[in-house]
Each structure stands twice: as C-alpha cells, then as structure tokens.
Design a protein around this nucleic acid. Structure first.
Lengths: 165, 165
DNA sequence: CATATTAAGTCAGCTTTGTTGACATTCCAA
DNA sequence: TTGGAATGTCAACAAAGCTGACTTAATATG
C-alpha cells in the first residue's frame, strides 16, 4: 500500500486497480443521480427529463438536433420527453426564424425553477464530494473523466464549456 | 487558469466548476459503458446482465440477496435477468449447504468467458484513461468518486474490496 | 413444538426510456 | 421546379426498472 507518484511505477494499471475503478464508477454514478431521482420520483418525470432540462438551461435556444447529439438518444425518444415538458409548460419551442424546420428550445419560468431545484440538489452532493477530496483530487478526477469519454463527446464537452452553440 | 493546490483557494467549488464536473460525469459514464454495450448489443443481453455477471464473477458463490443489495434493484427485476442467464448456461445456482434457503451463484465456463470479454473491453478503456491521466490523477479520481457514493454503498464498496462475503 | 421470519421465486400489471418504421414539412441545390 | 436532405412528429414495440400479492422451503424464536 505504499504511496507512489511520479513517472515510472505502473502498479496503478493492474487489473485489480482497474476493477476497483470500474466499481467505484458504478457506485458513484448511483450517488450522482440519487438526489435528482428522489425529487423526480415525486412528480411525473424521470431522469430523461432532467437531462433535457439541464442542457436546455445550459444552452438556451438550442435546437432539437443539437440536443439529440448531446444526449445520444434517438429523436423519437427525446421527442416524447420534450412533448410532455412543453405540454406542462416547462419548455417553450419556437419555430426557427432563419430555418423554419428547426425548433429552438428554452425553459419557461416554471422550467427554470425545476432546473434550479434539481441542479441545487446535484450540486450539493458534488460540492460535498469536492470539498472532502480537495482541489488536487478534483483536478485528477476531471482529467480521468475526460480521458474516458468517447472522442466526439469529448469535443462536445469542450465546446459546451467554451461557448454556446 | 492559475494552478492552485493546498488549503485555502475555494475557486474549485464555484457553481460553474460543479456544473462542469456534473457534465463530465455524464459524458464519461457514456464512455464507460460504451464498449460493453456494443458487445452486448450483438447478443440477447443488456447492461443489466453485464452488471449481474460482473458481481457474480467478483464474488463467486454470492447469494441472490447479496447481489440485490449491491445492484440496488428489486428481486423481480434481478430475477428476470438471472433466469435467462441460468437458462442459457452462463450462471449456475446451487442450493446453500448450511442454509438451504439460499442460492449460491457462480459463473459457468461460458459465463466466465463472456465476463472476460466484457471486462477486457471495459478495462481497456479504463487503462487508457488511467495511463493518459497518470497515477496522481487516478488517486484523485478515486477519492472524488468515493466521496460521491451514498454511505451504505461506500461501505459495500469497501467491503467488496477487502474481503469476499 | 408452534409460530414468525427470512430467502427465493413467481405472476400480473404498470412506467420510463430506449428502439424502428412511416410520414409531414421545410429548405436547398441541381 | 423538382427531388433529395434535414428536421421534427406519430405509432408501435422492447428492455428493464417498479409495486403488490402470493407460494414454498427453511430457519429462528417464543
């Protein structure tokens, strides 16, 4: 169990270490979604609604196609979710001005309120974990997560960090 | 973008930093499951089967109840998955010797072969990410993931690392 | 020993969220 | 101007979760 750091020691790449990382990822993801899930369970929405709301809040005016690429589901699947959100007055869909095939999505006041509620819960856990682990651990956490992404999603992740489409 | 570490700087806890962490977690989890998913899509199994196979391989002879607690699903849901795996000859269920109510689950040769195939794919990505990020980043990654788990799952995670039940 | 509890499994039915296939509308380029 | 590409919608189906009610067998307990 010796602490090791810097160049040459490759013990962190053993199958056992990798398996522990895989299980940590599995258990942590459960914690990651637990709080929003609890809130969503009290209403008629699920995790898919949360994801849509999150990325609409993130990039107001985004198109359905854009959202599709980020979420990685079929448009039919996303459409079902969007339809209920629009019917319930949480999301507004406006026909595009330059291209009338596109729909631009934004949150209504009610949608923004739900988004805040869900985000606050998820951020609270994230903040507690970050604080417990410390800034250096957080930097490592981010590095490994990024290296784990599929290349096209990594590009999307960077794009969404730097500018809104 | 100044590098900061040690005690006092709390800029890593801003809402924007937390949101980036949340999105990183979302995109990374997709990468995490992508390779096994591709393999599973070619046969009649899904992610639920993979999870069951993983933890049976991890703790051979584990009981149904044990698996239930680890996976966090209902027994009806797990049972559906286990039934197909047993019917297909990937998992063996043996009546317990000391407590005959219990069923002890193990992988058959065929089950172990599939487990290896899935693990190898998932570990390959994990290994690449670990190698790219380096040992110190990996340590931080593990710390943050652990801090994110629900307490009872964190205990389970530690238990499974140290000894088999 | 009688009874309560536990472990496992089953049946039925429902919900969420993914999938394909077919189709309407809009735009653009040959 | 017309045919294809892009965008979005509707319908039907599948995987995998869920609840609730129940059975069977074995163990624990009063």
């Amino acid at each position: 169990m010796a602490e090791m750091h810097g160049g040459e020691n490759l013990l962190f790449l053993t199958d056992e270490q990798l398996r522990q990382g895989i299980e940590a990822m599995f258990f942590a993801y459960r914690g990651f979604t637990a709080d929003p899930d609890r809130i969503l369970a009290t209403m008629a929405y699920g995790r898919a609604h949360h994801r849509a709301i999150h990325f609409i809040a993130r990039s107001p005016g985004t198109t359905v196609n854009n959202l599709l690429a980020i979420l990685g589901v079929t448009k039919q699947s996303l459409n079902r979710v969007l339809r209920t959100l629009i019917e319930d007055g949480l999301v507004e869909s406006r026909v595009g001005t330059t291209d009338k095939r596109e729909r631009h999505l934004t949150l209504t006041e009610a949608g923004a309120a739900l988004e805040r509620k869900l985000s606050d819960a998820q951020r609270a856990r994230m903040r507690a974990a970050y604080r417990a682990a410390g800034p250096q651990a957080v930097a490592g956490f981010r590095q490994v997560l990024e290296a784990m992404m599929e290349p096209d999603l990594r590009r999307r992740y960077h794009a969404i960090r730097e500018s809104d489409t």
